[in-house]
Design a protein around this nucleic acid. Structure first.
Lengths: 243, 243
DNA sequence: CGGCAAATTGACACATCTCAAAGCCTGTGG
DNA sequence: CCACAGGCTTTGAGATGTGTCAATTTGCCG
């Protein structure tokens, strides 16, 4: 049986606040079209004006910005349950692309369906707004990493973050998770060359804090990795409270 | 006469969409407390749980993240009309501080006032949500700059952005604006050392594209500076359309 | 058993950091 | 109106981090 993307979204929201049955119903009632995607497929094109929002059901995707000279920067990574381009509802023209890091599946919800929710439920609207706010908080953490952490520290921070985000949707446990990332893609996250990304991975392996083989990442000592990264999970807002 | 912060906010919103008189009235009706601040004053503390949102009326402020070893990263800069910690309404605990880059004035709007708006006007709620979405778009641009632009390119991009944002609230004209930034603060934006920030400023001056003296920045050739920075203003969403 | 994409390595060039000193503004008090 | 203090800016020199290029090795899949 396929995981239902709207259930994942509800689960993601429930990690942050309570929802009434009616609110859950509104979310499940959203019309959408489900699509599978393959690795490296571009789901949303930079500069386009999509009329739907893309909610991940399976797989990992990234937002990417293309610069001249063929370089690109990955400016966020998204896990199942994430409403990747929810902001498209408000901003209209995409300032980045959405690209799949692995094969997977997403549902595309027409903007009008989301706008309908904003007319009916103030609380649910705030919850969706909250999702974009959390997204922005994660981006701030990435800015801090890019600007002020060593590449190894940045990498460690990234792994702590991805672990907790996957764990929140039950895709990580026992300090292990599937990380379908190429080192070249990792380089586009860290803002360094592929060669340097590779050397940083090796350096982090050298500490014994992680293991990464055959697409599976294993955090051997989360506490120590957090400390190395100066990781503080507050910004992920994985706490249930009134919003 | 002092500029009214809510008028600035309305002006900021009007740059992106139309507002009815009733909607404008709702914004003006928000209760708030006005406060002056001095340069370097901390307006909001990282880790705190503010009960108000801070709307800038005059001056520049920054969001900063403190790392160990006394380093810090500025993860955004805000101009008059910006609702700096609007996301505090939804996220509750601050993942960063808000610090003044110059003397100025802000109004502090109780969360309940904003929440009230979310209960009354779906469109206005989307407009406030849009502000946080634009904020996030700017952060993505910063991520791309930090990750993939040269320091000089990053600086050029930053100046193009700040110019357009200030111009949008009539604080820049004739390619000139007041930039009350220390080179050490600039370094905290660019994610480099103060020495390197200084050398990058000199390098950009050397191109003849800018002049920067006595706190005033003058862009001599915006088109050329944009080209150097690969600057595309789309992400600022300075276009009026239905949202 | 290939064949290819991805990971790894080495060598050298360039970017950026650190530390420390010197120079330059600007506001203030005499 | 000048002299001075303090904060910024600028400079130099040597250490470290990171990029580039090109070759080699490894791992996965048919």
């Amino acid at each position: 049986m396929e995981l239902d993307a709207t259930s994942l979204l509800i689960h993601t929201l429930l990690r942050r606040d309570r929802l009434t049955d009616a609110e859950g119903g509104l979310i499940r009632a959203m019309k959408s079209r489900s699509k599978r995607f393959h690795r490296r497929q571009e789901l949303v094109e930079m500069g386009s004006e999509p009329s739907t929002c893309c909610l991940i059901a399976e797989g990992l995707v990234a937002r990417t910005v293309a610069l001249s000279g063929g370089t690109r920067q990955i400016c966020s990574i998204h896990v199942p349950g994430d409403f990747v381009d929810l902001h498209g509802l408000l901003l209209r023209v995409m300032d980045h692309s959405v690209v799949a890091l692995s094969a997977g599946r997403a549902i595309f919800v027409p903007h009008e369906e989301v706008r309908k929710i904003t007319r009916v439920s103030a609380h649910l609207t705030r919850m969706l707004w909250m999702l974009t706010a959390i997204d922005a908080a994660i981006q701030r953490a990435w800015i801090a990493s890019l600007g002020r952490r060593s590449t190894v520290g940045h990498l460690a921070h990234l792994l702590c973050e991805i672990y907790l985000r996957l764990e929140a949707v039950k895709l990580a446990a026992d300090s292990k998770f599937v990380l379908p990332l190429t080192q070249a893609e990792l380089a586009d996250v860290l803002g360094v060359s592929p060669v340097h990304a590779n050397r940083s991975v090796q350096q982090l392996r050298g500490t014994g804090l992680i293991t990464w083989a055959r697409g599976t990442l294993h955090i051997r000592d989360f506490a120590a990795l957090s400390a190395l990264a100066e990781f503080d999970p507050v910004y992920l807002n994985l706490v249930q409270r009134a919003r």
